[in-house]
Amino acid sequence: MNLFDVIHVQHQFGTIPVLQDIEFQIKEGETFGIIGPNGSGKSTLIRTMSGLLKPSRGKILLNGKSISSYRKRELAKIIAVLEQEGIPPLSFTVEEVVAMGRYPWLKPLSDLSLEDEQIVQTVLEKLGLWNLRTKSVNNLSGGQRQMVSLARAMVQQPRVLILDEPTTFLDIGHQMLVMEHVREWHQSEGISVIMVLHDLNLASQYCNRLLLLDNGHIKSCGEVHDVLQPATISSIYKTEIIMINHPIHQVPQFLLTSK
């Protein structure tokens, strides 16, 4: 059984089509990347896959069951979502925000148990946030807030992590930090990872398979080397590129070239 079955999904806002006849599958344990130009429908697709949006047509199955049939708390035990904007500046402390990730596992009106507190502490230490635990989130940098957002997702203990452009506003160091933590979590816990990425070089290094969207249509879906073809990428992104192999990982990497 597949983890996700996306079946003839269409979505539109008013009369404007955003996704058109989208169909693909994701297997459990994959790291699956969704790429494509701005406005191609990437964020809308993962919002439908996370249950936040209902498709205009078609259906999405999670473990063989329609995602719309899951209760909110039940779905939150399976899927954690790291949205593009991460966590906005808040007056809560780092520890308080991270602890919010335990919500799906708590009984109504109950406080964190000792086990919950231990889970929060372990994640804070793992992500290097323990010394910042009493600091207000609104005093953190963008990179630090993104790490807090990832920590909140980790304490949720999901089986599926969905990330919407998790590195967009981060410098190179924080980009690698986030991506390496996601990879380590995937490898150690066996979770499935689905992420929208703008950076094709990161997508090729951190994903097992890729889906390439353009104007709401699937242009390619498959292994990294099959999807990241120079002619295809140049055509869809409307720019001249040079493709080389990564000297260590032996995956496609792209360089821009001026005319």
Rank of each mutant, 00 (worst) to 15 (best):
M1H: 09
M1S: 07
L3G: 07
F4A: 05
H8Q: 06
V9P: 08
Q10G: 15
T15A: 13
P17H: 09
V18W: 00
V18A: 04
I22A: 00
F24V: 11
F24S: 01
F32Q: 07
G33S: 11
I34K: 06
I35K: 10
N38H: 13
G39W: 10
G41L: 13
G41N: 04
K42W: 13
K42D: 11
K42P: 06
S43N: 08
T44F: 10
R47F: 08
T48F: 05
M49E: 08
S50K: 07
S50E: 04
G51T: 14
L52F: 14
P55R: 12
S56L: 12
G58I: 03
I60K: 10
I60L: 07
I60F: 06
I67Y: 01
S68V: 15
S69W: 08
Y70Q: 06
K72Q: 10
E74Q: 11
E74H: 04
E74L: 10
A76D: 01
I79P: 02
V81T: 15
L82W: 03
E85I: 02
G86P: 00
I87W: 02
P88L: 02
P88S: 08
L90S: 11
V94P: 11
V94K: 09
E95C: 00
V97R: 12
V97D: 14
V98G: 00
V98L: 01
A99D: 15
A99S: 15
R102S: 06
R102D: 09
W105M: 10
L106C: 09
P108D: 10
L112F: 03
E115V: 15
E115Y: 09
E117P: 01
V120I: 11
V120W: 11
Q121L: 04
V123S: 04
L124S: 00
E125D: 06
K126M: 08
L127V: 05
L129S: 13
R133A: 06
K135D: 12
V137L: 06
S141W: 08
G142T: 03
Q144F: 14
Q146D: 00
M147S: 02
M147D: 02
V148C: 04
V148A: 05
M154C: 10
Q156K: 11
Q157H: 12
Q157E: 07
P158H: 15
R159V: 10
D164L: 10
P166M: 15
T167P: 02
F169Y: 12
D171M: 03
I172H: 10
I172K: 11
H174D: 09
H174Q: 12
V178N: 08
M179H: 05
V182K: 00
R183A: 07
W185Q: 09
Q187N: 10
G190T: 03
I191T: 12
I194C: 08
V196W: 07
L197R: 08
H198N: 01
D199K: 08
L202V: 09
Q205R: 13
N208P: 14
L211V: 15
D214V: 00
G216Q: 05
H217L: 06
S220G: 03
S220P: 05
C221P: 05
G222T: 04
G222F: 09
V224M: 06
V224A: 14
Q229S: 09
S235N: 08
T239V: 15
T239F: 14
E240F: 14
I242S: 05
M243V: 14
M243R: 08
F254H: 03
L255A: 11
T257F: 09
S258R: 14
S258T: 14
K259G: 14
